[in-house]
Structure formats: C-alpha cells, structure tokens
C-alpha cells in the first residue's frame, strides 16, 4: 500500500521539506480514509492509535459540555494535521473528533509510527519537532480563544 500512497502523500503540506526516507517510513503506516458528515471519528478517552492528514473536508474537535451535549472548540480543514494524542502517553484521545462535512484524509497508524520512533531516534525527533509545533499552534489558538477577543477592545487588565 505504501508504494501506491507515497506520491499523493507527498502533496500534503505535512510532508513539506521532509526527507524522502522519513516520508517512506510514514507512508508505510498510512491509509486512505473517508468519513461522511456527522461521523464521530474518534471518541475522547479511547486509544489514540492514529492521526489524520486532511486532504479535503472539515474535522471538528469537540468536548463534552458540562451542561450536556458537546462544545465545538476548534476545526481543521484541507491540509491540516489532526491528532497528537498518539505521541503522548497514555495515548488516549483528548477530545472527540467529528466530521463536519464529508472528509477525505490519510489516517496514519500511531502505534506503527511509535515503534518506528522508538527504533529510530532521529526519525522520532523529527516527529517530535513537527508535532510539538502542531501542539504549540493549537495552544496559541486556544489561548486567543480564551481571551474572548471580540467582546471588547481587549484592554490590558494587569498593568
């Protein structure tokens, strides 16, 4: 499967400026997936054995709301990477992942990739770099959302 997926994998922004050998290692753990709109793709607390490279469509990260139902907290679109739980113990999903629209994506097998990381620290470090950037971006976005940006002139409250 890896041999056939590799050329289309390369087109995803995640693989930009990545060495060929690294891409080959990852493509060995990749498969094509497709979800219809509304599909619960991953459930909070369940084993996080994969992450997604979205080719087309919109995935939403959701959390059960204390008031019942779920709150949609962030969305990801074409070209985005979704899921870092596969890399961080205890390897459980930290949120629900739901397809907002029809989604075509690559699913990358996290267990498979974790093994490769363990066996090849250089590869492992490359993965860590990319996913720590992803986590930092998400954290930054979350912080901005917490600031309730639009509700005032965002004046300093701690001089």
């Amino acid at each position: 499967m890896s041999t056939t997926l590799e050329p289309i994998l390369r087109k995803h922004p995640f693989f930009a400026e990545m060495e060929d050998a690294t891409i080959q290692l990852i493509s060995g753990c990749a498969k094509n997936v497709r979800y219809r709109a509304g599909k619960l793709v991953a459930k909070q607390g369940t084993p996080a054995d994969e992450f997604f490279l979205i080719r087309e469509g919109r995935l939403a990260m959701e959390m059960p709301s204390p008031l019942g139902g779920t709150q949609r907290l962030q969305t990801a679109d074409d070209g985005d990477v979704v899921g870092w739980s596969w890399l961080v113990p205890p390897y459980h999903w930290h949120f629900d992942l739901r397809a907002v629209s029809e989604v075509r994506a690559f699913s990358i097998d996290g267990r498979c990739l974790r093994n490769k990381c363990e066996n090849d620290p250089r590869f492992g470090y490359e993965m860590m770099k990319r996913f720590s950037t992803l986590m930092a971006d998400r954290l930054e976005a979350t912080r901005l959302q917490l600031m309730d940006l639009y509700c005032g002139p965002a004046l300093p409250t701690i001089p």
Partner: peptide, 8 residues
C-alpha cells in the same frame, strides 16, 4: 470561538 453541532 465555540459552537454547537449545528455550526458548519
């Protein structure tokens, strides 16, 4: 910043 499932 936050939405329910009806928000696409």
């Amino acid at each position: 910043d936050r939405a329910d499932a009806d928000w696409h």
